[in-house]
Amino acid sequence: MNRLATIFSIMTTTGVLLAAVSGAAWFIAALRHRETAAKSICLAGVIVAVLGFILFLRSYDSSLHQERTQEPEPPTTQSVSPEQPQEPAQGPVLGPEASTQGNTPAEPQEPTEPPQEPGQAASAVNPLLALDVQTRPVMNGFKTERIGTWAYIETTKEFMAGVTDQQLYDFLSELSAEEYNWFNVFFEDGTGLWTISPVFVEYGEADRNEGGSVEYIGEPEDCIFTFSDGHYSTEN
């Protein structure tokens, strides 16, 4: 009940008491046939009581209606998700030595692979692969029918001085897979190499037109080279 209803109830109670007291006084005066002011006071008390009672009822009804319409809303609960712990910022991971040394520059690391020897570095890129391999037909004795193919390259002895024995062996091994009848290396001074197998190489004067075996310059044991342990050596 609000404050206005309380005032109206007090007003009603006061009017009722005033009407009752003044009515009793008026009734006694009427028995004695005397007109007194109790009549007016009684009427005023009745009016005040009735008016206060009406206002009290209206105020009470309105307060009840307001309480019914304004029902308390259920408390809203917010789901509070547990805060995810923030991951610490990942910085560069320092080893135990780096953490103690502070800003001391790191010592240069040694290469994991040992440096290659000059022979190994040269064998990585075979210079003979840059030369053009040319082919010629192998004819029968009457020069009427082709019975095969021979191949050759042209270079200088100065160029061959930069070629290792292993590179020459690898180059001749690749050509052997082509199934040539033989292979020649012609030099600028009219000499050359001849081979049918990368293991055996002959050196001497070579015919560029016909190819084939060479004419030894000196003794055969000084002109026939055998490949073994990565090197060509004469048969002595």
Score class of each variant (00 low, 15 high):
1 M>F: 15
1 M>V: 15
5 A>I: 06
6 T>R: 12
10 I>E: 02
18 L>H: 06
18 L>D: 01
20 A>L: 13
22 S>D: 03
28 I>D: 10
30 A>S: 13
31 L>W: 08
32 R>N: 15
36 T>E: 04
36 T>A: 13
36 T>R: 03
38 A>F: 03
43 L>E: 11
45 G>H: 00
46 V>M: 10
46 V>F: 09
47 I>W: 08
47 I>C: 12
47 I>K: 01
50 V>H: 02
50 V>W: 01
53 F>I: 01
54 I>Q: 05
60 Y>A: 08
63 S>E: 09
63 S>N: 14
67 E>S: 13
67 E>N: 05
67 E>R: 08
69 T>W: 02
70 Q>G: 06
70 Q>A: 08
72 P>V: 04
74 P>E: 05
75 P>F: 10
75 P>R: 12
81 S>F: 06
81 S>A: 14
84 Q>Y: 08
84 Q>V: 11
86 Q>C: 01
86 Q>Y: 12
87 E>V: 03
91 G>V: 06
91 G>N: 11
92 P>S: 09
92 P>F: 10
96 P>G: 11
98 A>K: 10
101 Q>E: 10
102 G>Q: 11
104 T>M: 10
105 P>W: 05
106 A>T: 04
107 E>P: 09
107 E>S: 09
108 P>T: 06
109 Q>I: 14
109 Q>V: 14
110 E>N: 11
111 P>N: 01
114 P>W: 02
116 Q>H: 07
121 A>K: 09
121 A>W: 04
121 A>G: 01
123 S>A: 14
125 V>H: 03
127 P>L: 02
127 P>D: 02
129 L>V: 05
129 L>G: 03
129 L>K: 14
130 A>Y: 07
131 L>S: 04
131 L>E: 06
134 Q>D: 09
135 T>D: 09
136 R>W: 03
138 V>S: 14
140 N>V: 08
141 G>Q: 07
141 G>R: 12
142 F>M: 05
142 F>G: 06
145 E>V: 14
147 I>T: 15
148 G>W: 05
148 G>H: 15
149 T>A: 15
152 Y>G: 09
154 E>M: 14
156 T>A: 15
157 K>Q: 14
158 E>D: 15
159 F>L: 06
160 M>I: 05
160 M>P: 04
161 A>T: 06
162 G>N: 11
164 T>S: 15
164 T>C: 08
164 T>V: 06
166 Q>R: 02
166 Q>K: 06
166 Q>F: 00
167 Q>N: 10
167 Q>E: 00
167 Q>T: 02
168 L>I: 01
171 F>L: 04
174 E>S: 12
174 E>Y: 03
175 L>Y: 07
176 S>P: 00
176 S>Q: 13
178 E>T: 14
179 E>G: 05
180 Y>C: 10
181 N>W: 04
186 F>C: 04
186 F>G: 01
187 F>L: 13
189 D>I: 01
189 D>G: 09
192 G>D: 07
194 W>F: 12
195 T>A: 10
199 V>R: 08
205 E>S: 03
206 A>N: 06
207 D>E: 10
210 E>C: 02
213 S>D: 12
215 E>K: 07
216 Y>E: 03
218 G>I: 12
221 E>T: 15
221 E>W: 07
222 D>Y: 06
222 D>S: 14
224 I>E: 07
224 I>H: 07
226 T>D: 00
226 T>R: 09
229 D>T: 09
229 D>N: 10
230 G>S: 10
231 H>I: 06
232 Y>T: 11
233 S>P: 07
